[in-house]
């Protein structure tokens, strides 16, 4: 299971309105429920927020990787959000967050869950990648960059 297959172009979102951590997660939940009808936005939201309660998924450097398991998804789902302005995410280093990579996995896919999380973290841990993603001026550019980085990571 590679990241590329679970992150189709329409789920790479550019210029997402920020506001707060809660608002962003709400935004994504609504979006994903529209994108994949089997998902319930309320359910996704409560799972994501539930995970945040255990400790913020803001991993530092302005990046957050909210993730959760959901009984209603049949295969892993990823989404990428570049926020219009950085928001407070209780991140580990306290930095405001503007790059959000969301992961949802089916309940039975535990090993995949961890390996996908590891892949996302590796990509987002690269300073150069983050800087380029921040500089992206359009959805197209963002998508191209992200796809290139994901491919780079899978082949290496």
């Amino acid at each position: 299971m590679t990241l590329e297959t679970i992150l189709p172009p329409e789920r790479v979102l550019f210029d997402v309105p920020g506001g707060s951590k809660k608002r962003v997660l709400e935004f994504f939940s609504t979006f994903i429920a529209q994108n994949i009808p089997s998902l319930d936005s309320q359910e996704v939201f409560s799972r994501l927020i539930g995970r945040e309660r255990l400790g913020s998924t803001g991993i530092g450097n302005g990046v957050a990787i909210p993730h959760a398991r959901s009984p209603h998804c049949s295969a892993p789902i990823a989404g990428f959000l570049k926020l219009a302005e950085a928001i407070d995410f209780d991140a580990i280093d306290g930095d405001p967050v503007d790059l959000v990579f969301v992961l949802l996995v089916p309940e039975e896919a535990d090993d995949t869950h961890l390996s996908l999380l590891g892949q996302v973290a590796t990509i987002m841990n690269d300073a150069d990648t983050r800087q380029k993603l921040r500089k992206a001026g359009s959805q197209r550019e963002l998508l191209e960059l992200l796809t290139a980085k994901i491919r780079e990571q899978t082949t290496s």
Partner: peptide
Amino acid sequence: TFTLDGSAQMQDIAQAYG
């Protein structure tokens, strides 16, 4: 990469990661 709070309940963590 990820950090959890020491006060988090084990059952919630088990739930989140299966």
